[in-house]
């Protein structure tokens, strides 16, 4: 792989990750959001794979393949099953409307670039330049968790945060150890399993999957 191809693929894949994050804020249909998430997972895996091929790091290549399998296929499939309990579900009334949340996402991306400028200067390599994208994905994911009502949207936000962290980890340190990556992925899987059970409960109790219904629990 030539140097320019490497840089182009890396930039493209990392860019795709943040674009997918913004798209999840833009789309209202939950099934579309889950598909976007799958694309993002694949893009993330491609970042890891590209880095691994470039650095001839077998572990990183393995991690890349695992990421594509888990975040690109397994997790979206499981999430899709959660949504199957409430077909044609849409994020009807987010706390912040779509245009405003897109503006917010823009501001957060700016903030990510501003805050990580010292890190970018310090690393100075091609992957290093892309670190702000991972950071921005994290912030946008957090933002999605704050403004969305559906339980499924919340988990999507959590996955965005997780993907953002993973992207920063790949770019800044040339990959986290396999064990750590596996652990993080397992955590996310567990969260989805819990959500699956929670969604079932919510559906049978309230007939909706809005987290606002849970407000009475605080005392």
């Amino acid at each position: 792989m030539s140097a320019s191809t490497y840089a182009n693929v890396l930039e493209l894949a990392a860019g795709l990750v943040i674009v997918c994050a913004v798209v999840t804020l833009w789309r209202r249909s939950l099934s579309a959001i889950v598909k976007t998430l799958a694309v993002q997972g694949i893009a993330l895996g491609v970042v890891a794979l590209t880095l691994g091929l470039h650095q001839h790091d077998d572990v990183l290549i393995t991690v890349g393949c695992l990421v594509i399998c888990s975040k690109g296929a397994l997790i979206p499939t499981l999430l899709g099953r959660v949504l199957a309990s409430e077909p044609k579900s849409r994020e009807t009334s987010p706390l912040v409307n779509v245009p405003a949340s897109l503006v917010g996402a823009g501001a957060l991306i700016f903030l990510a670039y501003g805050a990580t400028a010292p890190v970018v200067d310090l690393v100075g390599t091609t992957p290093g330049r892309l670190i702000p994208l991972g950071f921005a994905t994290l912030l946008v994911g957090f933002f999605a968790m704050v403004v969305r009502r559906k339980a499924a949207s919340q988990i999507v936000g959590l996955l965005l945060v997780d993907n953002g962290i993973a992207l920063v980890a790949f770019l800044a340190t040339a990959g986290v150890p396999l064990l750590v990556e596996l652990g993080a992925t397992l955590d996310v899987l567990l969260v989805i399993v819990v959500l699956r059970a929670l969604a079932g409960q919510l559906w049978s109790r309230f007939g909706v999957l809005d987290l606002d219904q849970l407000r009475e629990l605080h005392d």
Partner: peptide, 12 residues
């Protein structure tokens, strides 16, 4: 006030 969103917003 028990709202999950509010707690998340504090974090953000």
């Amino acid at each position: 006030n028990g709202s999950v969103h509010r707690y998340l917003a504090y974090g953000l």
